[in-house]
């Protein structure tokens, strides 16, 4: 019960009541904190990338595109083994979290 009150208070205090109320199982928000943590693995190669590089920039790309491409590496329909290796262990929730993070995140460097 204590946890319940604290969790609700956090959301209300932050002013996200509307977002919380709107959430359903079908529209569950991506876990941005998780996305940010997982993104540190991506940044090793993509952190300084330009759009035209062999390793492309992934900051600011749409969530849909991000998820489609990463899932294509995961199921090996895209070829690069480095990305197949990285994507291979990402769950759908992981990919959604990463996609949500990179869609809005600014480059860290």
């Amino acid at each position: 019960m204590t946890m319940r009150v604290r969790g609700a208070a956090l959301v209300l205090t932050a002013g996200f009541f509307v977002a919380a109320a709107a959430e359903t199982a079908a529209t569950r928000a991506a876990d941005i904190e998780l996305g940010r943590y997982l993104s540190s693995e991506c940044v090793t190669c993509h952190g300084a990338a330009k759009a035209h590089d062999t390793i492309p920039n992934i900051y600011g790309i749409s969530e849909t595109t991000f998820a489609e491409v990463v899932k294509a590496y995961r199921d090996k329909s895209l070829a690069n083994p480095v990305m197949q290796n990285i994507a291979g262990r990402l769950s759908d929730d992981d990919i959604a979290a990463l996609a949500a993070y990179f869609a809005t995140a600014e480059r860290q460097q």
């Binding site: 946890m3 969790g7 609700a8 876990d31």
Partner: peptide
């Protein structure tokens, strides 16, 4: 509870 935390985190990110 987890979802509430996720929402809070997601929104705070901006």
């Amino acid at each position: 509870r987890r979802n509430f935390s996720r929402l809070a985190g997601a929104s705070l990110a901006t």
